[in-house]
Structure formats: structure tokens, C-alpha cells
């Protein structure tokens, strides 16, 4: 690990400086995470009177529980849909904005503000628009002959949360794509144009390959976003329903822990989620290392 060539010498001061952060990290991060791991090996009787150590029984039960397997499946569908929808639309917008010479900044301002909107607020707005009785979207769908009802139809509910979650994430992806596009040397595009390649061909043979590191990075970040930060979108709209069809993993930890009070199972689910986050973070860091060299 790097330090300065010149460092200060003091026996006590550095410890005092790291103490606040370490104390908070320990009390609110490491201790609870350790508790979750420990709890995942225990089984508590319904009255909380007796706990017994059950090794991996909670995990074994988890992975044969059809509801949990369903939730895994739902989470994968949800995370992939959000990533594809928000990355795709952000890319189209960024490529268009990159063509603008003077108005690029204005369009950026008009597109980035949803980043500041809370996921819960985004959820409530889309929930309102798709409201089966008065919502404008359900009204239009009805005119097209589709009877929208996200409180009864699992597919409708999933579409609703995907749209609300993606809407908020477009601005973030847009900023990263725009930065990536502006980093591509103009000479490459000019050379290709002189060789007779049109805009579409240039996009697929030059721009898209050069954007692939950005795209990969965004894919990971968007997966993490969809899996963890969208709790509020789900809680504020469908609450995991109808019949568990939008209960993604994070939502299920909350539901089983706080509402169902299945502590052992909820803790085991937390540990599974931690493993997923750590894997995704490691992938992301490996990418950053490679990216720096490149």
C-alpha cells in the first residue's frame, strides 16, 4: 500500500484519526454482518425461548424452498431487464447528445436530474401513472385493448417496477456513456469516414467496441443497483406482490425478517446476498485494475 515519501512521525495521532471511522465501521458494519453469519447457523423456536445450533440447515432449507428459488429467478429477470433497458436507452441518448456541438450541455442538464429523485419517489410516480382506475398509462393501454392491472397480474407488476427502476438509472448511465464517447479520439472516426464508412457502420465498428469497458462497468453497477437499491421502488409500489412475483432477494430478506420473523432464514438470505455483493464488487475492481493499465 502506498504512502508518501515524507511521512509524519507520531505514535498516537494516526490511531486517533482512524478511530472514528473504525469505530462506526465496527459497530454498524462488521458486528451486524458477523451477527448475520452467526444467526444463519441458528434456529430459534417461535417464542424466542430456545436457540439451537443447526449448522447449514437454514441454507439447505433455503435452496429447496420453491419461494426462494422463485425469488432468485425473479431477481435475475428484474436485474437483467433494468440493466438492458436503462443502459440501452442511455446509450442511444448519449450517442445523440455527443453529435451536438452547442446544445450538448443543455441536453445533459435536462437529462441528469432524475439521478437526484429518490427511488421511492420514482416508484410512487409510476405507480400513479399506471393506476388501474385513473392512471393515464393504463387508460391508454385499455384503448389499445389491454386490461392493465399490476395488483393482479404478475407480468404487469414486474413491468411496472422495471420501468420505475430504469427511469431513475438512465441519467447515471447517460453521464458515463457521454464521458466515454468524448474520450474516443476524433481521428479514428475521421479516418473511417475518409475510408467511406457511414455513421452506422462507424458506430458498430469503432464507437461500440471502444465503449465496451464503459458498458461492462455500467452492467455491473446497474446489476448492483437493481439488486440492492431498488428496495424502495418495490416497497413503495407492489410490496413484492401479487403473490411474490416482484419479491426480489433484498425485499425477501426484509419480508421474512421483519414481517415473517423467520430470523434464521432471513440471516441465511443476508449471507447469500453478501456473497453476491462481494462477488460483484470483486469483478468491478478487477475491471478497474485492467482499465487503469489500458
Amino acid at each position: 500500500m502506498q504512502t508518501k515519501r515524507t511521512v509524519f512521525g507520531s505514535p498516537v495521532l494516526p490511531y486517533l484519526l482512524v478511530l472514528p471511522q473504525l469505530a462506526i465501521t465496527f459497530v454498524f458494519f462488521l458486528w451486524p454482518a458477523g451477527q448475520a453469519v452467526w444467526q444463519s447457523f441458528l434456529r430459534e423456536d417461535p417464542f424466542g425461548l430456545k436457540t439451537s445450533f443447526v449448522w447449514f440447515a437454514n441454507y439447505q432449507k433455503l435452496f429447496v424452498d420453491p419461494q426462494y428459488l422463485y425469488s432468485l429467478q425473479i431477481t435475475a429477470v428484474f436485474a437483467l431487464s433494468v440493466a438492458v433497458l436503462s443502459i440501452g436507452s442511455a446509450l442511444v441518448l448519449a450517442v445523440a447528445a455527443d453529435r451536438m456541438i452547442r446544445l450538448s450541455q443543455t441536453y445533459t442538464t435536462l437529462l441528469v436530474w432524475p439521478y437526484a429523485v429518490a427511488p421511492a419517489v420514482a416508484g410512487v410516480m409510476w405507480w400513479f401513472m399506471f393506476n388501474p382506475t385513473i392512471g393515464i398509462m393504463s387508460y391508454m393501454l385499455e384503448m389499445l385493448g389491454y386490461d392493465w392491472n399490476h395488483s393482479l397480474n404478475p407480468t404487469d407488476a414486474m413491468i411496472l417496477v422495471v420501468i420505475a427502476a430504469s427511469w431513475k438509472q438512465i441519467s447515471y448511465n447517460f453521464l458515463f456513456f457521454l464521458a466515454g464517447l468524448q474520450a474516443i479520439p476524433a481521428s479514428l472516426n475521421e479516418a473511417a469516414a475518409i475510408d467511406g464508412a457511414g455513421p452506422v457502420k462507424r458506430f458498430f465498428t469503432i464507437v461500440l467496441p471502444l465503449l465496451s469497458p464503459t458498458t461492462f462497468f455500467l452492467a455491473v453497477v446497474n446489476m448492483v443497483y437493481a439488486m440492492f437499491d431498488t428496495f424502495a421502488v418495490i416497497h413503495a409500489t407492489t410490496q413484492g406482490g401479487p403473490s411474490g412475483s416482484t419479491a426480489i432477494l433484498v425485499y425477501k430478506v426484509f419480508q421474512d425478517g421483519f414481517i415473517g420473523l423467520k430470523l434464521g432464514s432471513s440471516a441465511a438470505q443476508s449471507v447469500v446476498l453478501m456473497v453476491i455483493v462481494i462477488t460483484l464488487t470483486v469483478i468491478q475492481f478487477r475491471w478497474v485494475e485492467r482499465h487503469v493499465e489500458y
Binding site: 459497530v27 454498524f28 458494519f29 458486528w31 451486524p32 454482518a33 451477527q35 448475520a36 444467526q39 440492492f228 437499491d229 428496495f231 433484498v250 430478506v253 426484509f254 425478517g257 421483519f258 430470523l263 432471513s266 440471516a267 443476508s270 446476498l273 453478501m274 455483493v277 462481494i278 464488487t281
Partner: peptide, 14 residues
């Protein structure tokens, strides 16, 4: 690596 959502129960208890 540990967003608050994944360790919500024990953190609440603390």
C-alpha cells in the same frame, strides 16, 4: 461491499 439492505436485521438490533 456491505450495503445496509443486506444486513438490515442485525444493524437494526444494534
Amino acid at each position: 461491499m456491505l450495503p445496509v439492505e443486506v444486513r438490515i436485521m442485525p444493524t437494526f438490533k444494534v
